[in-house]
Every structure is written in C-alpha cells, then in structure tokens.
Amino acid sequence: MSELLQLLVSGLSKGCVFGLIALGFVLIYKATEMLNFAQGELMMMGAFVAFTFVNLAAMPFLAGFAVTLVVALAFGMALERGVLRPMIGEPPFAVLMLTIGLGFVLRTVAVNIWGTDPRTLDVPYAGEVLVVREVVFGYDNLIVIGATAFLCGGLWLFFRRSRLGVAMQAASQNQLAAYYSGVPVKRVASLVWGISAAISAAAGMLLAPISLIDQNMGFIGIKAFAAAIVGGFGSLPGAIVGGLLIGVSEEFALRYLWPGFGEVTAFVILLVMLFVRPQGIFASLQKKKV
C-alpha cells in the first residue's frame, strides 16, 4: 500500500511537469496555431539559467526562480519576434520543422555554454522527506505538485480576470475578430510565447531536483506533447490532466511492467488514444468540414 502511494505521488509530480510543458504547447497552439517542438528545450534552457543564477551567482532560491522566469519570458518573446514571426502564413509543417531545428540549436547552445556534464540545482528542500504513517514522501515531489497547482490557479485567474488574459483568449478564438476589436494581436502572440517559455522554465526548475539538468532533458518535451494530445489538444485543463495520466502510468509501468517499457508508455497511451478517441479527453477543437 505504501509503495503504491509513493509511486502515485512521484507519478503525479512527474505528470505535473509533463502537464506544465503541455500547457506551454497548448497556449502557443491556441494563440498562434503554431506547434512548438522546442518546448522541451525551452524547459532545459530555463533549468540551466536557474542553475546559473542559483548555483553560480549564489542567489537565494526564490529570487533565482523569479529572475529565471523573467529571463524566460524575455527569451520567449524575442524568439517569437525574431524567428517565428517571419513564418506567419507559411504552411503549418514548415513552422513545425522550424521549431524542431530551433530545438537542436538550443541544445547545442546549452552544451557549449554549460558543458556536457549533468548538473544539479541547489534547492533548499533537496533530499528532505515527509513521513506520514510510515509512508515516505520526498519534498521535491510534493513541491512540484503544489507549485503546479499554484501556477495553474494563477493562470486561471489571469485568463479569467485580467484585461490582457481576456485579450489573449479573444486572439486565440478568432484572430481577425480580435484585431477588429482593438486587440494588438501581434503583441499578444509575442506575450503568449513569453508566458509559455516562462511556464516551461518553471517546469524545468521544478524538475531539476528530481532529475539532473543536462542538454537532453528536453526530450521529455515529446512525452509532454503526447500528454497534450491525450488531454485534448487546445484544452488547458486537458493538458494538465493528460500530463498527470501519463506521468502516473509511466511511473507504474517503470515499476511493474517489462524493463525499459516505461520509457514508451507515453507513446503507447498516445497511439491507443488516437485510435479510440482522437479528439482527446477534453475535446475542444473541431476540424473544418466541407
């Protein structure tokens, strides 16, 4: 029983990270209809930037966290302005390939700045555990879950209550109508990229104490993509739910199924889902019909 609970918590925390990255995908997709395959690499960059501030510059953890979010926001906006905006109106697969290329470039940049050795982020809660009735939970896992809940709450309020959030929703529902109503669509798209990069960076910083920081950590972005689709692409709660589902099943598969199978669980779930219910758990997008 205690083992099951522990697996569940570590699976949920992993799922939260998947969910956050998936959230980044979905935000960008809803606002600009672009698929960003470099989302995992944005997460990696976030983790490395946090490593620079917290470990190398010896900033307090929370301050380093905040500064990293700002840097990621700026980086995401710059990326949109410099690389993605010239691609507006190009076919979707061109944009997709562009972001794949971008991911490769980011990985090489990271290797050349921070080296190939895996790094650990100095967090104040590293290695500490919470014991409830002889069941041991790692603080790192619990904090991931808590922080994800907090971030989601913040985003929900932002999209519901703030002017900018509503403008973003409008732009993602219908760009032209939003433009006519005075929403600065270009600037909004830029900001969405920024926010998405910041969320990914947060995911990277939360993941860093659990796994190590290296240039290949961005590969979990692929699993996050699977999570986004399982949840129903284009649905924000769906991204989180999909992430949790994949995170938990992966954790259980790693423990109980054939060796190495855990690594492909996400993809098996994805393919099964695409056969059974291609629109995902929370269907929100419809395809144009003739």
Binding site: F93, L96, I222, F233, A266, L270, L271, L274
Partner: peptide, 9 residues
Amino acid sequence: VYLAVATLA
C-alpha cells in the same frame, strides 16, 4: 499536426 507526434511515438 497530430500526425507528426503520432509518427514520433
């Protein structure tokens, strides 16, 4: 777009 991910899977 789903296709790209499915093929990757």
